[in-house]
Amino acid sequence: MIFATLVHSHNYDQLLLKAQASIFPKIVLLDKKLNEKLVDGKIIYTIAYEEEDYFTAQEIAKYMKINFKENFDKYNYKVNLIKFSNLSYDMNTTVIYALNSNENIQKVANIAKKKGIITFSYDINNLKNGLLFSLMLEKTTVLYLNKENLDNEKIDFIDSLLQMVNFID
């Protein structure tokens, strides 16, 4: 049980982490403007974490490596672990996956909005703060999307995906 040891910091639902790590990278591929977001021809999958969640972030990266090997479909990818505090407008990334943070979510949202970065959130509550996607294990698995944050010229997901998601106003 690879996530067994992670419980010490923030309380992360192990299953939910796994589900998100399995599904989010595939969603990235459904952006019609993905090519514009590649960095050196690669998808950069940034995991933003608070200090105490470093292990969690690491484990996610490990899991993704096992799960996806080298590629998301036909794209090369690279997982980038970065502390919330180190996030900046200068960084180049395709995706930011935000773990829990009490203060830094808004910061992620702002950067993403400006730079047209696709954002995923562990916690659904962070969508209100401007992150784009989240996923919940309810009676069925539900993909949540913040409608407001879709209004970005640089992001254009295929309609079939949009028809699958649950919108949050």
Partner: peptide
């Protein structure tokens, strides 16, 4: 076809985790 595969794969994953 590729997109369709992706969508199928996503819903399969969602189902599995469910």
């Amino acid at each position: 076809a590729q997109t369709e595969n992706l969508l199928t794969s996503i819903s399969n994953e969602m189902e599995h985790f469910n």
